[in-house]
Design a protein around this nucleic acid. Structure first.
Length: 671
DNA sequence: CGGCCTCGAGTTCC
DNA sequence: CTCGAGGCCG
């Protein structure tokens, strides 16, 4: 047996390393360990070092980046990179589809392809005889910058096309794609920049574009950029009929195409996809700001043509942005019902994701300073998880003279000295008589605990301001005349409010317990305490050790409960509530049911057709099941209605069963 | 002690 | 929804 020549071994190793790059970066399905990959890579590099004349630009070792260049050369695209017309409403999309149908003069349905619109940096890659020869940024659409050396560092860009045995590559293919930075990579990049005392990047798109335009390819190589390929520009000797075929061709030839591309037979189906993806976007590890919608048939595309370099056969459907920049006018502090100090941001009103945001929570002092947010900053506001606005961070530099945030030393409401227990994130006002705590406790009572219809935060604030309300018992002593004297209350609405308050006396014991605002006692723990101890009397008499016997209650919660009842003022309060006729012991029907579903745990998510969430929960609990709202490995099944949220994803990951409304019905009927 | 699993608490807009 | 922290299991 003759030893392989160095050249043969180099070719072999290059092919192997690229194969593993492909499995890892394109398919996300590696077939060898990292250590094995490193071993092959090191061997390849060693032989190449000994034989530099055998190293071509296609070698995977060349991906680590060459020496910096002075500036980028201009590069003319083989085919114009047009931009897309945008649409933001379903009406606009329908109008476009109608226009397409009319221009094509067709009665049969038109097929469309939708794909996620990646918020990154558009590029064009030229392959000659299957080899990547050059690539450029979009630029003005006619001419971009030659960033070939940087693109070579991106592992998900094939240096050579994958070919079937005996297949001849087309002499020329211009591949179009979007370079992006996965969110994880964006976060670590920013951490790194901040650690180096440099400005963090405001968003992943800027970070991707910036990384791609580094004059030193070694910097680009250090950033975890990736590509989604979405189409073909100029091409020679390749016959395709549809855009879907083009995507399949690209995938087969080693390019990373987005798995979210879908073919649709009608515009209605396209619109459904637009809605569905708006929900799915939060679960992706990269940013998308809409869907690109294309007419599938290339012949139809050609017939439709373009207007001012904007193809008539495609639209970018864009959602309202979920991040925006605005000015942080001030940082204020609120005191919650537990005495915790919550800093919040007063913002110059700005539209984010279709709603106007003017305030946002800032959580705690550490969080503010970790993000380095200061009054007067321009900040990035985002709506995380679809709803709750967050201040993501400042756009540096800070304005002249802006100081880091410091929590006030004294309570802004009662002046008591603020404390911050060792190891805790929150500052607290220790004054149990602090007016904010009384007010917040009342709001908690009427809203969360007793759920009094028509009596909410506004009602409580108004009566508090009028001096009519200082504690829960006051609420039950209110008279209609007192309300009608206030502005905004007529006879009827006053009557109604008083009746609703009176009705709330019938609420079960555990709700009263929940409403008392005992530290660490929320909805679930209150139920648990109520079931196990049965009455306020027994609870108040119980020692910490006895309370701790209750399942799910440890020393900290037990101590908090015992301490609360040991307080004279609190026992007074409980006695008063009892005298007013509130329930202070467990009624017979309040015990958790034992039944067919005992021991099973369900999570209900999304909108059900025939039940409200609460009804579904009640029906399941009646059969002995437990219903929680976080999916874990212990969950028996997730019951998903329409528009389920991120819970589905977690359930899938954990291998938890997912059933629809049908499944719930079968469960309840015992089938 | 570490790693789940739960629960508590605070929260925005209309 | 998300974070932080308590409870519990191995």
């Amino acid at each position: 047996m003759t030893a392989k020549t160095a050249e043969e071994r180099i070719r072999e190793l290059q092919a192997l390393v690229e194969q593993h790059n492909y499995r890892y970066y394109v398919l996300d399905d590696p077939e060898v360990s990292d250590a094995e990959y490193d071993r092959l890579f090191d061997e390849l590099r060693a032989i190449e070092e000994a034989h530099p004349e055998l190293v071509g630009p296609d070698s995977p070792t060349q991906r680590i980046g060459a020496a910096p260049s002075e500036r980028f050369q201009k590069l003319r695209h083989l085919q114009t990179m047009g931009s897309l017309d945008k649409a933001t409403t379903h009406e606009e999309m329908l109008k476009w589809a109608e226009d397409v149908r009319r221009r094509l003069d067709l009665d049969e349905p038109i097929a469309f392809v939708t794909e996620p619109k990646i918020d990154g940096s558009a590029i064009s890659l030229v392959y000659e005889n299957g080899a990547f020869v050059r690539g450029a940024t979009r630029g003005d659409g006619e001419e971009g910058e030659d960033v070939t050396r940087n693109l070579r560092t991106i592992r998900s860009i094939p240096l050579t096309m994958r070919l079937a045995p005996g297949e001849k590559p087309p002499p020329l293919v211009e591949v179009r794609g979007e370079i992006y930075l996965p969110l994880e990579g964006f976060r670590s990049l920013n951490e790194q920049l901040v650690a180096q005392g440099r400005k963090p990047s405001p968003n992943p798109r800027n970070a991707a574009a910036g990384s791609l335009r580094q004059l030193d390819p070694r910097i680009t190589a250090s950033r975890p950029l990736a590509i989604w390929v979405y189409g073909i520009g100029a091409v020679e000797r390749l016959e395709l009929e549809t855009h879907s075929q083009a995507l399949a061709w690209l995938r087969e030839h080693g390019f990373r195409t987005n798995p979210g591309a879908e073919r649709h037979d009608s515009i209605e189906s396209v619109l459904e996809a637009c809605e569905e993806w708006e929900r799915r976007r939060a679960g992706l590890d990269y940013e998308i700001d809409g869907l690109v919608v294309k007419v599938d048939s290339l012949a139809q595309q050609a017939a439709l043509g373009a207007l001012h370099q904007r193809p008539r056969w495609a639209r970018a459907f864009k959602w309202a942005p979920t991040t925006a920049q605005t000015k942080l006018l001030g940082i204020h502090v609120r005191v919650g019902r537990t005495g915790a100090l919550n800093p919040w941001a007063e913002l110059e009103p700005v539209e984010v994701g279709g709603v106007t945001i003017s305030t946002a929570t800032l959580h705690n002092e550490d969080d503010i300073n970790r993000k380095d947010i200061r009054e007067g900053d321009t900040v990035i506001v985002q709506r995380a998880g679809d709803v709750i606005p967050q201040v993501a961070g400042p756009v540096l530099p800070h304005p002249e003279g802006a100081e880091p945030f410091r929590m006030p030393r004294d309570c802004p409401l009662c002046g008591a000295e603020i404390v911050k227990p060792e190891g805790e994130a929150m500052h607290r006002c220790p004054n149990r008589a602090c007016p904010s705590r009384g007010l917040e406790t009342l709001i908690h009572w009427v809203q969360a605990a007793m759920d009094i219809e028509g009596v909410g935060e506004k009602f409580v604030r108004k009566l508090w301001a009028a001096g009519l309300l200082r504690s829960m018992p006051d609420l039950y002593r209110l008279r209609v005349e007192q309300l009608t004297e206030l502005e905004g209350y007529g006879e009827i609405s006053a009557q109604r409010a008083i009746e609703a308050i009176d009705l709330s006396k019938q609420q079960p014991f555990f709700r009263v317990l929940f409403g008392l605002n005992i530290p660490h006692v929320g909805f679930v723990t209150a139920q648990s305490l109520a079931y196990h101890l049965g009455s306020v009397e027994r609870l108040a008499a119980a020692t910490q050790e006895e309370i701790q016997e209750v399942e799910g209650i440890g020393p900290i919660v037990a101590e908090a409960v015992a301490d609360w009842f040991a307080d004279e003022e609190n026992s007074q309060l409980v006695a008063e509530l009892g005298a007013l006729g509130l329930r202070l012991e467990l009624a017979e029907d309040e015990r958790p049911a034992e039944g067919r579903l005992s021991g099973h745990v369900y999570v209900v998510t999304g909108t059900l057709e025939h039940f409200s969430r609460a009804q579904a929960q009640a029906a399941l609990e009646e059969l002995g099941a437990r219903v929680t709202d976080s999916v874990s490995a212990k969950t028996t099944a997730v019951i998903a209605g329409e528009n389920p949220g991120s819970k589905i994803e977690k359930a899938t990951r954990l291998g938890v069963n997912i059933v629809g409304e049908r499944g719930l019905e079968e469960l309840l009927s015992g089938e």
